[in-house]
Design a protein around this nucleic acid. Structure first.
Length: 466
DNA sequence: TTTTGAGTTGTTCGA
DNA sequence: GTCGAACAACTCAAA
């Protein structure tokens, strides 16, 4: 018998590679629904809302081209779903499984009242399916990735459905109910754009140069797919499938290494999703509890300088301005500015984490938290505490001609390559550009001491307990 | 249970 | 200028 199902869209704004839509379609008729959840939108900054609205309009166009359309409602999800179930004579809701703490609380509550079926699809491997031999979760990346690869299920293609069943006329409102979106020129939203970018990354050979070029701030060596994966405009299964194909087709050892490195990044995404799933407390606290004792400086003026890109370290300022202007930052730059905030300014990594959440189009709690804890050296399988990036050395190595700095810090554009990385003594001054707010060598030692003190505090406490 | 090998992305210093 | 060691043990994961 033909029945109707609701496809509740949250972070899966796509028709290809969408197992949730596939499951809903088995019922016959499908109502694609997006809910403007006030609790969630309060925590979503304008830039990310705009990306979402634009993505939903594109999804609506794709649905209409196939005979369906998007329904948009606002309110607490449980009551919106309950009333739509009544209006449409529908019994069942399908949604892609979402692993953030808020999403899990929300979905658990709804499942107690309504028939909500969560379909796994945000990551390739459902976190509880990748465990150690003793049934506990991995906390180290390399063994996790080995297990993840060892019993990886087949990644067959899931094309977009060619036709979709119509949505009954009386189910309203349509997508016009959304606010109008001021779209980013850097990241146009939507599945078609995401597909085009992914195809370009593979076809241009960038994936085969990735191991070297991904670190270069002045080149487009990364795929820049993160905003699209964040909102599911691109499915993780499909991306991993492409990475595996590229790996199999690699022409030589260097290309193979690059494709493997890129695949590893995708596995890191799954690893950090699993870490947040199994250890939700990392949202608030360092995974390594000793480092909860670090005595942060938390100087607010320094923090403001970092946010605005006014630290006097050109590469740090370039990256922070790129973030504010585009909603995205190069991966190497993220490490660099995170290391600078935590280890040069000795500011709590959570301050930086929050600023990234406010500004990144791709902001994802699991990835952002994992990245910050990794760089701060306080997380699972984190960077060793003594790895403190030198912002000048990093700048020279990964932006050798200063092109990245010149692009985002125009007041330095006239400086010659030899001095653009700064910081400078009395011999160079630039109008409107600050002097370095901290001396790296001094700051490095200060951080080594602070971390050592935190560890010493922990071990003496352990001794007292014994 | 014990043992063994290993762990994303660096920097600094001194020989 | 180049190169290797130190940084600090620790904890994980699997045999």
């Amino acid at each position: 018998m033909k029945t109707t199902a609701i496809w509740w869209i949250r972070r899966d704004l796509r028709l290809r590679d969408n197992p949730t839509l596939g499951a809903a379609l088995k019922h016959g008729a499908v109502i694609p629904l997006f809910i403007q959840d006030p609790a969630l939108l309060r925590a979503t900054p304008l830039r990310r809302r705009n990306f979402l609205w634009a993505g939903l309009r594109r999804l609506d166009a794709d649905l209409r081209a196939r005979g369906s359309r998007l329904v948009v409602r606002a309110g607490p999800p449980e009551s919106v779903l309950a009333s739509l179930l009544r209006e449409s004579g529908t019994a069942v809701i399908y949604a892609e499984e979402d692993y953030t703490p808020y999403a899990r609380r929300r979905d658990d509550a709804i499942q107690r009242a309504l028939s909500l079926r969560c379909v796994q699809g945000q990551v390739v491997r459902h976190p509880p399916d990748v465990l150690k031999g003793d049934g506990t979760p991995y906390t180290v990346f390399t063994p996790f990735s080995k297990r993840w690869l060892a019993d990886l299920p087949a990644l067959g293609a899931r094309p977009a459905p060619e036709r979709l069943p119509p949505v009954p006329e009386h189910i309203q409102p349509a997508v016009d109910a959304l606010p109008t979106a001021d779209e980013s020129p850097h990241f146009p939203a939507g599945e078609a754009e995401a597909q085009a970018r992914q195809a370009r990354f593979i076809a241009s050979g960038a994936i085969y140069r990735y191991a070297e070029q991904r670190n270069r701030l002045d080149l487009d060596g990364t795929s820049a797919l993160s905003p699209y994966m964040r909102f599911g405009m691109l499915g993780a299964r499909q991306v991993v499938g492409w990475a595996m194909q590229a790996l199999a087709a690699a022409p030589d050892a260097s290309a193979r290494k690059s494709a493997q490195t890129w695949l590893n990044q995708l596995i890191w995404r799954e690893f950090f999703t699993a870490i947040l799933y199994h250890f939700p407390q990392v949202h608030e606290r360092s995974f390594r509890s000793a480092y909860e004792r670090i005595r942060w400086l938390n100087n607010e003026a320094n923090f403001a300088d970092w946010q605005r890109g006014q630290t006097g370290y050109p590469v740090v300022d370039a990256a922070m301005r790129q973030l504010r202007q585009t909603g995205w930052m190069h991966n190497r730059a993220r490490m660099l500015v995170a290391s600078f905030l935590v280890k040069d300014l000795l500011i709590d990594w959570r301050w930086g984490e929050a600023w990234f959440m406010e500004n990144l189009l791709d902001a994802d709690i699991a990835q952002n938290n994992g990245g910050w804890q990794w760089t701060a050296g306080v997380g699972t399988d984190a960077a060793p505490y003594f790895r403190i990036l030198n912002p000048v050395l990093q700048s020279k190595r990964f932006d050798p001609h200063g092109a990245y700095i010149r692009r985002w810090v125009p007041e330095l554009a006239h400086l010659p390559d030899a001095v653009i990385h700064g910081p400078w003594g009395k011999n160079v001054t630039v109008d409107g550009y600050p002097r370095a707010i901290v001396d790296h060598k001094f700051a490095r030692q200060r951080t080594l001491d602070a971390y050592a003190q935190a560890r010493a505090g922990e071990s003496s406490q352990t001794r007292r307990r014994k």
